[in-house]
Computed example of a mutant assay.
Amino acid sequence: MSGWSPDRIPDQHGRRFVITGANSGLGAETAAVLAARGARVTLACRNLEKAAVVADRIGSAATVAHLDLADLSSVREFAGTVDAVDVLINNAGVMALPLRRTADGFEMQMGTNHLGHFALTGLLLPKLTERVVTLSSLAHLGGSVRVDDLNWERRRYNRWAAYGDSKLANLVFAQELARRITAAGSSLRSVVAHPGYAATELMGHSETPVDYLMKAGALLRVGQPADQGALPSLYAATADVPNGSYWGPSLVLRGGPSPARYRSIVDDQSVRDKLWAVSEKLTGVTVDVPA
């Protein structure tokens, strides 16, 4: 699939996509391509001003809705406005922030990247007709699933480790969701993607020297621009891919969509069960897969 491009996406007329964090970067590029292929796209964003600019550029196929994944009341409010959706793309994320907490007291990266999307997916699952696409990251390779301290209340905080934890949680959740979908005999799919090294607004907020290294990498084109970084998630959202499949750039950091590998811990059932249970407890959302 290394030569795959968006012009190979089938006609998307009649399909509705909800894309979190579509006010910039990968989410904005994903929304624009899907709309160009005929889809209706809902830009579910915290920053409505930026989202409006993207929606204006896309045209009438795009609508903007407020969603703050760092506030479970906002997640519930948004989910209540959705009647039916074909594809949910869990795209939004924050990276390597200094220690901050969500409205519900979660560590900001775990709260936004995983727990917010866990709750949103659970609330929208009964309204979903086709698939959930969850964005992970190569950073999951350095993550851990500490269910006894998911929100960094006991450990000395490390912003990069916390980011890795959240992206590993994305993968563990998405793959366990895929298993439960199969067990329920459902026609839904849970698919995962990662963008490789993509130059987006996600970079540059760690307030450490690493920000300069990442920006230098983007300038030197070590990775790829946002429109190329969006290819794996676009492929995962529109192609006839298997439930539980994982997609990333063919050259790892860049390139067209290709099957990707993840750490073996993602397939550890005890880890999956523990993360699922603590996620339900913290969010108050029970995620049931409809048959």
Rank of each mutant, 00 (worst) to 15 (best):
V64M: 06
L120H: 08
N151F: 11
A79W: 01
Q109D: 00
V94I: 14
V85C: 12
H117M: 01
A169N: 07
R155G: 10
G143P: 05
N158F: 12
G122Y: 00
K167T: 01
I181A: 11
L115A: 07
H66P: 12
A161C: 07
D165Q: 11
N113W: 04
A62W: 03
D83F: 08
E153F: 08
T182G: 10
D68I: 02
L124Q: 10
G143M: 03
G164I: 04
T81M: 05
L99S: 15
F118T: 12
Y163Q: 03
F118N: 01
D83T: 09
S73Q: 08
T63Q: 15
D86S: 15
P126K: 13
V75Q: 03
Y157Q: 09
A79I: 01
A84S: 11
V145K: 03
F78G: 00
W160H: 15
T63M: 12
V87W: 10
G116K: 02
L128N: 03
R146H: 15
Q109E: 06
G105N: 12
A162T: 00
T102A: 14
R180A: 09
R146V: 05
L120S: 06
L124M: 10
G116S: 01
L168C: 11
L128E: 05
M108V: 08
T63F: 04
N90R: 04
S73T: 09
A92V: 07
S137P: 09
D104Q: 05
V132Q: 01
V87T: 15
L120G: 09
A162S: 15
A84R: 15
F106A: 02
E77K: 13
D148S: 10
L124S: 06
D71F: 11
D71Q: 02
A92C: 08
G185E: 10
P126A: 07
V172P: 00
S74N: 05
L123S: 04
T129N: 07
F78P: 06
A178F: 06
L115V: 13
N158H: 10
T134Q: 10
V94Y: 07
V94K: 12
A139W: 01
G164D: 07
I181D: 11
A178R: 03
I58V: 07
E107L: 09
L67T: 10
A103S: 14
L171A: 08
A65P: 05
L97Y: 05
G143R: 00
T121M: 09
L120K: 00
L125S: 05
S166E: 04
V133K: 04
H140L: 07
K167G: 10
G80Q: 05
